[in-house]
Computed example of a mutant assay.
Amino acid sequence: MPQSPSPDIYDCQACGACCAYSEDWPRFSLETDEQLDAIPEAMVATDLSGMKFENGRCVALNGELGKCVGCTIYTVRPIVCRDCMPGDPECLMAREAIGLPV
C-alpha cells in the first residue's frame, strides 16, 4: 500500500500555495472583532469577507511562490490561514492547483 508523504517535506516558507489558491480562501470565519481589527484595513477585501486577493494571491503574501514566501501579517493572520497545515488535504489541493509537487 503506498504511503502518503510526510507533512515534514512541505515547507510553508518555500511554498505559499494556500495563499494563492483562491480569492475565496483567505476568508474570515470565526475571528472576533478584536482579531479582525488587528488586520491592516488596506489588506481586507472591500466586501469585508476576508483578505484582499490581488494578482492571484493574498496581498499579505510576500515573496515568490514555490521558492521563498512569508506572510506579512503572520501573527494576526485569519483562522483559515492558521488551520491550513503542511501536507494536509487543503495544502495538497492548493499545491496541485498552482503546479507544485504533491
Rank of each mutant, 00 (worst) to 15 (best):
P78K: 10
L61Q: 03
C71M: 01
C84L: 08
A45C: 07
M1R: 14
E34D: 02
C15I: 08
M51C: 03
V59E: 13
D83C: 15
C68N: 14
C71Y: 03
M43A: 11
I9E: 11
Y74P: 07
F28D: 00
D37L: 10
I79T: 14
R95I: 04
M93L: 11
K52L: 13
N55H: 12
L92N: 01
Q13K: 14
R57I: 07
E96Q: 10
D47N: 10
A14C: 06
P78V: 11
P40M: 01
A94T: 04
C71E: 00
G50A: 03
G70F: 14
N62I: 09
T75C: 09
V59T: 12
P101M: 04
C71L: 02
G99C: 09
M1V: 14
V69H: 03
A97D: 01
M1Q: 10
E96F: 06
C12I: 06
R82Y: 01
T75F: 09
C15V: 02
D11H: 07
L92D: 03
E90H: 13
A97I: 04
I39S: 02
E23M: 08
D8W: 04
G70D: 05
M51Q: 09
E23Y: 09
N62Y: 13
R27D: 04
S4M: 12
R82W: 02
S6C: 06
T32Q: 01
R95G: 07
P89D: 13
E96N: 12
E90L: 15
P5T: 03
C15M: 08
D37P: 12
G50W: 06
F53I: 01
E64N: 07
G87S: 04
F53T: 05
Q13N: 10
C68G: 10
V102P: 00
M93Y: 04
A45Y: 02
P86T: 11
L36D: 05
Q13R: 15
P89A: 10
L100H: 13
A14F: 01
G56Y: 11
M43K: 11
T46W: 04
K52N: 01
E96W: 04
M43Y: 13
C68D: 11
L30T: 15
D8L: 12
E31L: 13
E64G: 03
Y10I: 04
T72H: 05
C84I: 09
R27A: 06
C12D: 05
D88T: 14
A17K: 02
T46P: 00
E31H: 15
Q35E: 08
E90Q: 14
M1L: 10
R27E: 08
P5Q: 09
G87N: 01
V102F: 10
C68R: 13
A45V: 09
C58T: 05
C58K: 05
A97S: 08
G63K: 00
V80K: 14
A38E: 13
C81L: 05
C19A: 06
P40Y: 04
D24Q: 05
P78T: 07
K52A: 05
L36T: 02
D33Q: 09
P86L: 05
P101T: 08
D47Q: 11
L100E: 10
V102D: 09
P7I: 03
G70R: 13
